[in-house]
């Protein structure tokens, strides 16, 4: 069982307000993607073990850890090592693939409906989810009971950014609609590129990229077959939803469970000061 799963199970040992408190704290620590994930989970493990012990002694988590958990968490985070470069790839690669799946499904839906779409619309569909993911860290700290001024400022900036960039996407000049053939060729090129990238990376990060390699290898041609076949629209929609669901589950699982990188590297255990 990996450390993240163990910590999630340990959280369940806390009850009522203790669990709410701990969940908010753990969520805040985990939202800092710039910090080494194993060091972060190791810290969370220590904090949860002690919170559970305090609970058993009748001490509330708030009294045990402190009335300003965000300030304490910030001090803890300042002491943690930065995320290694590989971790960024592990965190972002699943999202990158998932965003392209979204684009792929959207474009295929357009083709199946017989409609046309311009390149500007397609980029909009890709940019908007990317925008939400990019500004999500600015909302860190919003779930604490006492929201700090800096958190309010960051969240306000995030909202303004979302509105501004969304507005800008509508101001982009219209492009000529792409024909069905152009869309299919474009999608084919993208899928081929993703298959090659995932295959190449699988020699280094097998457990991260092999599922995506297989996904694109299976889904790409399958959807092409769907478009060529005369299947009922409802069935096609269901199949596309299933493809999307599989993607979301894979992306969420991979983004959270980084431990497998270390398992793939020979099961290196985390020892502090080694």
């Amino acid at each position: 069982m990996d450390l993240l799963t163990k910590n999630d199970q340990r959280l369940k040992e806390l009850h009522g307000f203790n669990r709410n408190y701990a969940e908010t704290l753990v969520g805040y620590l985990r939202a800092h993607w710039g910090k080494d994930a194993l060091a972060r989970e190791d810290t969370i493990a220590d904090l949860l073990v002690d919170m559970v012990a305090a609970q058993a002694d009748g001490i509330a988590s708030k009294d045990h850890f402190g009335k300003d958990p965000q300030a304490a968490a910030d001090e803890i985070l300042a002491e943690l090592p930065p995320a290694p470069k590989a971790q960024w790839l592990l965190q972002l690669w699943p999202l990158f693939n998932a965003l392209w799946v979204l684009m792929f499904v959207y474009a295929d839906a357009i083709i199946l409906s017989g409609e046309t779409v311009g390149l500007d619309i397609l980029w909009q569909q890709l940019a908007i989810p990317f925008l939400f993911i990019a500004v999500a860290p600015l909302f860190r700290g919003i779930s604490f009971n006492q929201i700090k001024t800096k958190t309010k400022w960051r969240a306000s900036i995030a909202v303004v950014l979302i509105i501004a960039i969304y507005a800008v996407t509508f101001l982009l000049p219209d492009t000529s609609p792409l024909t069905s053939d152009q869309l299919q060729i474009g999608l084919g090129v993208v899928v081929a590129a993703l298959i090659v990238c995932n295959l190449g990376l699988s020699f280094w990060l097998r457990r991260l990229t092999l599922p995506w390699f297989l996904y694109w290898l299976i889904v790409g041609p399958s959807v092409r077959a769907l478009i060529g076949a005369t299947l009922p629209v409802a069935l096609v929609v269901v199949l596309l939803v299933v493809f999307m669901g599989a993607v979301l589950a894979l992306a969420i699982y991979q983004s959270k469970h980084l431990h497998f990188v270390f398992q793939a590297q020979g099961g290196k255990q985390l020892h502090v000061n080694q």
Binding site: L47, G66, A78, E79, V272
Partner: peptide, 20 residues
């Protein structure tokens, strides 16, 4: 509170004054 102590433990480890 542990929120006060834990960052100090991390700092002491980082300085190499304690091991864990």
């Amino acid at each position: 509170t542990e929120g006060t102590v834990y960052p100090l433990l991390l700092k002491l480890q980082r300085n190499g004054w304690i091991s864990a």
